[in-house]
Nucleic acid binder design. Structure first.
Length: 358
DNA sequence: TCTATTTGACCGGC
DNA sequence: GCCGGTCAAATAGA
């Protein structure tokens, strides 16, 4: 029991809240403002705007009323203008003419608006019909047994939403749309942990996003590539990992059964990712949780070298070394006592101290 | 009491 | 045999 608990790298892992800003795009309602006639917007006339944008029969009649009122207002204003004008008859005639012309324009615009409303009404009715047909088809489908083609099509759509596809039809059938909080047990490992290497055999293809799934192929893994490792460095480290993934028989004997799930599933290979990075800050606040599991005093360096393992996730194979490192000599510094968590690399290369799991 | 750190011992590679 | 890496019991601290 105790051994099993310790095997979990000390039990609980501090949770780091990551607020994924789900700034929902929500219902992005697109407001379309129809242009009418000579390019003027129909709601430039504030008398028409509120009710005429929606193609409703009642509103259509109210719209007509408003237009009639508007015409009356135009006329009254025209009369007022004619009465108020104390200038000559000629000026009155001119004003009358201009007013008449203006009235004509307004009437034309009124007509165009009516035509536009009629068009909108027609479209609206067409859409309503189509929607009705679709609803009827859906109800028919739900009552009748679906054929295989449709089912496959749907499941493929679902698998696309999950970000994984499968060519195995049986497997495809297993994927259903998970409701909230209802995730397939198979997917929990990969989705929740995201870096756990206990990947089912059948999931290996799809879950290439796993942290370090080099069971069969100890080549360059995604973990390495995600570190932006330089080619030479990655090669060297991959060699290291390849060595480390093959624990000797003695270790296999003494390896605790509960140490990690990897040893249970594939006892011949124990994955591990070593991150050798440089960090200029006194703390390795890199978004990961590192737990110190050992410390050594390297030869010729009074500053101890600390060994950390990633505790972001259970069985996370990522390790980290920390110690002082001299920029110039690419060797351990020994003239400063308060060392920084500086991670050496095999060839002196430094990386950002970010756990690929994070 | 639980969790993280310390530290001596152990192991494998060179 | 030396050295680096890891383990795990002991210890510290919250």
């Amino acid at each position: 029991m105790e051994a099993a608990r310790k095997a979990d790298y000390g039990g609980k892992v501090k949770e780091e809240k990551r607020v994924e800003s789900d700034a929902g795009e929500g219902d992005c309602k697109e407001e379309r403002v129809p242009k009418v006639g000579n390019g003027r917007r129909d709601h430039e006339n504030d008398n028409i705007k509120p009710s005429c944008t929606k193609p409703n029969q009642k509103e259509l009649t109210s719209c007509d009323k408003q237009m009639t009122v508007m015409d009356g207002m135009e006329r009254s204003s025209e009369e007022l203008n004619s009465k108020a004008s104390s200038s000559t008859q000629k000026e009155k005639d001119e004003q009358l003419e201009s007013a008449k012309a203006e009235m004509g324009e307004v009437k034309e615009e009124n007509q165009r608006l009516r035509m536009y409303l009629n068009q909108i009404m027609k479209d609206y009715q067409n859409l309503q019909m189509q929607f009705h047909d679709i609803v009827q088809q859906e109800t028919k489908k739900s009552t009748s047994p679906p054929n295989n083609h449709q089912e496959a099509e749907e499941t493929e759509l679902v698998s696309l939403t999950l970000g994984r596809t499968s060519t195995d039809p049986k497997k495809v059938e297993n994927y259903v749309i998970p409701s909230k909080g209802q995730v397939h047990e198979q997917d929990k490992e990969g989705l929740a942990l995201g870096l756990d290497c206990q990947v089912h055999e059948q999931d290996k293809e799809g879950l290439a996003l796993g942290l370090d799934c080099q069971y069969e192929m100890p080549k360059i893994t995604l973990a390495e590539s995600s570190l932006n490792a330089s080619p030479e460095n990655s090669l060297e480290e991959v060699k290291e990992e390849a060595r480390d993934t093959l624990p000797p028989p003695k270790i296999l004997k003494t390896m605790r059964s509960g140490e990690d799930g990897v040893s249970e599933q594939s006892p011949a290979k124990k994955t591990r990712v070593s991150v050798r990075v440089r960090c200029d800050t006194p703390t390795m606040n890199d978004g990961c949780q590192w737990r110190k599991y050992g410390q050594k005093i390297a030869k010729g360096n009074p500053c101890p070298r600390a060994y950390y393992r990633c505790t972001v996730a259970l069985n996370c194979p990522v390790r980290k070394q920390a110690g002082k490192w001299d920029e110039n000599t690419n060797a351990a510094k020994n003239d400063q006592m308060n060392w920084n968590p500086l991670i050496k690399t095999g060839n002196g290369e430094r990386k950002s101290p970010r756990c690929p799991s994070a």
